[in-house]
Design a protein around this nucleic acid. Structure first.
Length: 939
RNA sequence: GCCUCGGUGGCGGAAUUGGUAGACGCGCUGGAUUCAAAAUCCAGUUCUGGCAACAGAGUGUGGGUUCGAUUCCCACCCGAGGUACCA
């Protein structure tokens, strides 16, 4: 080989690794285990862009490094292959989502293979594969058959709960359940109808059916997420959206709120990510207080974190949807209350959040009685109180809460000042150190002391108790979609009933259309073979539903996060068809040692998967309550968009420097038509789109310069850079090292190709160290002390950098080493050979090639031990000490490196130059930092 | 508003527990090589002044602790991400 032929080297070694299954991990080994995981991708039609592999490269470097270090490394990859884009494509074209998905996966795989990852492809999984979702359905059934026992603090079988109901009712049951769960005795339970029993059990199940309020779009026939609704209409199509209660599958994640919060402290995750989860869970400690309603036998509960301010409560506010509103409203106010409720119902949740500037509300005519002083307090409704948080009602203390203050001002409600030295003419006092007044037995106390005192009083008189509230809500688990896991559920006499486990997987049925049915049913309503024959235990035609033993199947499918909430465990034993994973496999691998992925999953995947893991831990299926103790976020790689400037109303385009002289509109232009100096290839531009074919240009110095802007990389912005092109032009190793060199992995950064050449040069120089005039030429001579120093310094620094995931500085270190060795014209085997191993996690193709040339045919470098540095080569014989006076450098001194602190001090003070500098000054003290500095403090 | 993270040359970015700020790369300048260019190699490159030695300033701003601060403390400004009538 005459030159560094990276394309040939890439192909050769990628083939070799595939054929030899070099990176296949075994489930038993004498070596210690290490599990490196990337968040698996959704295979979209657009293919990979240069941003996707960033995390995969980092994890691959670490995985390869750990293999060198003697670990049995599990480094798998797969696809989160259920999802919306494939379904939408199916709606447009009639192409089955499975076909599209298969094509996309093939493309992803080809692209990933070109980068030379050390994935164990024998363990590949796909969430849309029935062999995989069989076990997603299985886990769903375990959740369905469990409830959360608050005494034992773990999930328990529903069958045990039923036994308790049969013997003592639910009076002593302390379990996570819906708020409206009735209290009943054993005798009552026995007399309930099967439907009633079923309904009650749903209030306890960890996955359960409930009427949840959703954004329903009648025109689209589907439920939309909050961010798909803009100004009360759907983001796509602009159809009206209404709030509607629908029967949905829910996940009782709230049962795990406290454990999800507590265990965050055990995790070595980025602080920002943990903080996001903490906020999302939103724990607040306070009290609930019962208020009687004047002149009735009704009462209602409020939650507050400031029980101490009860004497300052001058009105009560209920959410417009509060169930008591209709019952307590007096005739006088009925019409106005009704009108307000209707107005509030029309607003989407998002609107209610945004129009928060001005408070609106309506008095109900009813009054509550303050339990501590029997004061009559008017009850209002307002949408600033949310039905879904706490009890949906609050006690309003305008002196101590800014929102209550604004409301009181708006409606001229009196404000009682309850804080000493407080000015209530402008705003409320939210300072917790303020001392209470006008508060009877709490006068003179700050919140910290007053809160427990008040709660004690409330508990004694039986009108309140200490309480903890969480912002976290139970998660909606149904989707009105086709391309997702079907539920293994059928409806017998209206009761959701599990299909026996032995019949899993319940495979997704074929449908003619992927749209909702005409009567508003989800797409599975179009399926012909979608009914459960209980007698014969199989899925049959829906035509047979009138038959006594044939029942309709669930028409919803599971959401995208179902399959991704446990996939990390499946990799441990991906082909098991008896269990989601074998006991032996999970006991061996236990958990992910290093997890890499984006922070956008903080309150989605990363929370749901922790929840499922804890459930599986409770039920004894997994040995760890947290599946990933160490997590690193990789930052996004942003696109560097290019713009041309069209003069309005013409087909003329003006160069960036001149654009301010005209009235122009910027237009995205494909970055692949722009060179490194931001000049546009005008011919390519004309050929790009028909409407630009006759474009005119106003040039500057004969060239057209584009404008630049950093944005998210996306097809629609024409700023996507395909990794294949970089690999083609510079080789996989250059791409790998360059992406690492770009900056720390956690940071978001724009893609620019400016530095590619530098990294590529490094690899060429490295190759050149082994070759004279293109011919392999490595000497067996003993290395010099200087060469050994370079080697060992590099080993030390690079190893430390890898351990700290500081891959950008590791790459720099390699560059330094190569520059130094190039200057010495080193071609000694004893230096170069360890460097090859050291480099191999970063540039595996080149490393394997050189390793082969060094004479290790047939032995993959991948399992060679990583070189270790030796301290003795790092010691320097002399060290230059800066001699500083009052922190300013005045002199440099060459001293032996191994000199002790006192010795350095004496030698420095004896130095002639130092003596002359000290002349006429008073020496106060001498600071010696061995190996670093000598600082003389003088006056 | 609140929470988290950050602010260092023309650019991306380095700097162990406070100890010579600007590693490495890009770009730029000069030189070598070449008929010429590309490529490669060598030297220089924080700013200001100076031919230079050198001097002064310098890590968002202002203050503080210290012999010494990019690093620690206080206040503020700016940016990114998250979150929001959460009672």
């Amino acid at each position: 080989m005459k030159t560094y032929d990276f394309n040939q080297i890439d192909r050769k070694w990628q083939k070799y690794w595939a054929e030899n299954q070099t990176f296949k991990a075994e489930n038993n080994s004498d070596k210690p285990k290490y599990y490196v995981l990337d968040m698996f991708p959704y295979p979209s039609g657009a293919g990979l862009h240069v941003g996707h592999p960033l995390g995969y490269i980092a994890s691959d470097i670490y995985a390869r490094y750990k293999r060198h270090k003697g670990y049995n490394v599990l480094h798998p990859m797969g696809y989160d292959s259920f999802g919306l884009p494939a379904e939408q494509y199916a709606i447009q074209t009639g192409q089955h989502p499975a076909v599209t998905t298969e094509q996309n996966i093939k493309r992803y795989r080809e692209q990933m293979d070109k980068i030379g990852f050390s994935f164990d492809w024998s363990r590949e999984i796909r969430t849309s594969d029935p062999k995989y979702y069989k076990w997603t359905q299985w886990i769903f059934l375990q959740l369905f058959n469990s409830y959360y026992d608050k005494d034992k603090n773990q999930a328990r079988p529903v069958s045990e709960l039923i036994k308790v109901f049969e013997t003592e009712g639910n009076i002593n049951v302390h379990a996570a359940s819906d708020k409206d769960t009735p209290v009943f005795s054993a005798a009552e339970w026995q007399n309930f109808s099967p439907q009633k029993k079923d309904e009650i059990l749903h209030k306890y199940r960890i996955t359960y059916l409930a009427d949840a309020e959703v954004n329903w779009c009648p025109a689209l026939g589907t439920v939309l997420a909050n961010d798909e609704v803009v100004n009360g209409v759907s983001e796509r199509g602009g159809h009206p959206v209404v709030r509607k209660k629908m029967r949905q599958w829910m996940m009782r994640i709230t049962a795990y709120a406290e454990r999800l919060l507590q265990d965050l402290d055990k995790l070595d995750w980025p602080e920002s990510l943990k903080e996001m989860q903490r906020n999302w869970i939103g724990k607040s400690v306070g009290a609930s207080i019962w208020f009687d309603i004047d002149g009735t036998d009704k009462k209602f509960e409020v939650f507050t974190t400031r029980a101490d301010t009860l004497f300052g409560a001058t009105f009560m506010v209920m959410a417009p949807e509060h169930e008591l509103v209709d019952k307590i409203t007096t005739d006088e106010y009925r019409d106005q209350v009704k009108a307000y409720q209707e107005k509030a119902a029309r607003k989407s949740e998002r609107e209610r959040m945004t129009d928060s500037k001005e408070k609106t509300g309506q008095f109900t005519g009813a009054y509550a009685i303050n339990p501590v002083n029997n004061a009559k307090i008017p009850i209002w409704i307002s949408d600033y109180v949310l039905a879904g948080y706490g009890t949906g009602a609050i006690m309003a203390v305008p002196a101590g809460d800014q929102r209550d203050y604004e409301f009181a001002k708006q409606f001229d409600i009196p404000i009682i000042n309850i804080f000493e030295g407080n000015d209530i003419s402008e705003k409320a006092n939210e300072n917790k150190d303020a001392v209470l007044i006008n508060s009877d037995f709490l006068n003179g106390l700050p919140a910290k002391e007053a809160i427990p005192k008040m709660i004690k009083k409330l508990e004694e008189t039986g009108v309140g108790k200490a309480e903890i509230n969480y912002r976290l809500r139970d998660a909606v688990f149904s989707r009105q979609r086709y391309w997702g896991e079907p539920f293994p559920i059928y409806y017998k006499n209206g009761m959701a009933t599990a299909i026996p486990e032995k019949h899993l997987p319940v495979e997704l049925p074929e449908v003619e259309k992927y749209l909702p049915t005409e009567d508003g049913q989800p797409p599975l309503g179009n399926a012909k073979i979608w009914a459960w024959d209980e007698a014969n235990e199989k899925i049959v035609s829906t035509d047979l539903i009138d038959n006594e033993t044939v029942f309709p199947m669930e028409l919803n499918t599971m959401p995208g996060w179902a399959g991704s909430s446990w996939y990390f465990n499946r990799y441990m034993d991906p082909h098991n068809d008896q269990a989601p994973f074998g006991k032996e496999a999970i006991e061996y691998w236990r958990k992910v040692d290093l997890y890499l992925g984006g922070s956008e999953h903080a309150t989605g995947h990363l929370l749901y998967s922790r929840f499922w893991q804890k459930f599986l831990f409770d039920t004894g299926y997994v040995p760890e309550p947290e599946y990933s103790v160490k997590l690193i976020n990789q930052g996004m790689i942003l696109g560097n968009s290019a713009f041309v400037y069209r003069i309005n109303g013409t087909n003329k385009f003006v160069s960036y420097e001149l654009k301010n002289d005209y009235d122009t509109t910027p237009i995205h232009v494909d970055v692949n038509m722009v060179d490194d100096y931001d000049y546009l290839d005008t011919e390519k531009f004309k050929a790009w789109r028909p409407d630009f074919a006759d474009a005119d240009f106003i040039l500057k110095d004969g060239k057209y310069k584009v404008g630049r802007e950093v944005e998210k990389m996306s097809k629609s912005k024409y700023n996507v850079v395909n990794p294949d092109d970089i690999v083609e032009q510079y080789g996989a190793d250059t791409l790998r090292m360059y992406e690492m060199f770009l900056g720390p992995i956690e940071i978001a950064k724009p893609w620019n190709t400016a530095g590619l050449k530098g990294v590529h040069n490094f690899l060429r120089k490295f190759w050149t160290l082994f070759h004279q005039d293109g011919i392999f030429d490595v000497s067996l001579e003993e290395p010099t002390e200087q060469e050994l120093k370079i080697l060992h310094k590099t080993i030390k620094k690079v190893t430390e950098d890898i351990e700290n995931f500081s891959f950008n500085t590791a790459v720099s270190q390699f560059m330094i080493a190569v520059n130094e060795l190039q200057k010495l014209k080193t071609n000694k085997r004893k230096i170069l050979s360890p460097l090859v191993v050291l480099l191999s996690p970063f540039a595996p193709h080149l490393a394997e090639e050189l390793w082969d040339e060094l004479g290790h045919e047939g032995q993959s470098i991948s399992f060679e031990p990583y070189p270790q540095y030796e301290e003795r080569y790092l010691k320097e014989s002399t060290k230059i000490y800066p001699v500083m006076f009052n922190g300013k450098m005045r002199h440099k001194l060459d001293l032996p490196a191994n000199m002790g602190k006192d010795e350095i001090e004496q030698t420095v003070l004896a130095d002639e130059k130092v003596k002359s500098l000290l002349e006429g000054k008073q020496l106060i003290k001498v600071i010696v930092v061995p190996g670093k500095i000598v600082n003389l403090v003088v006056k």
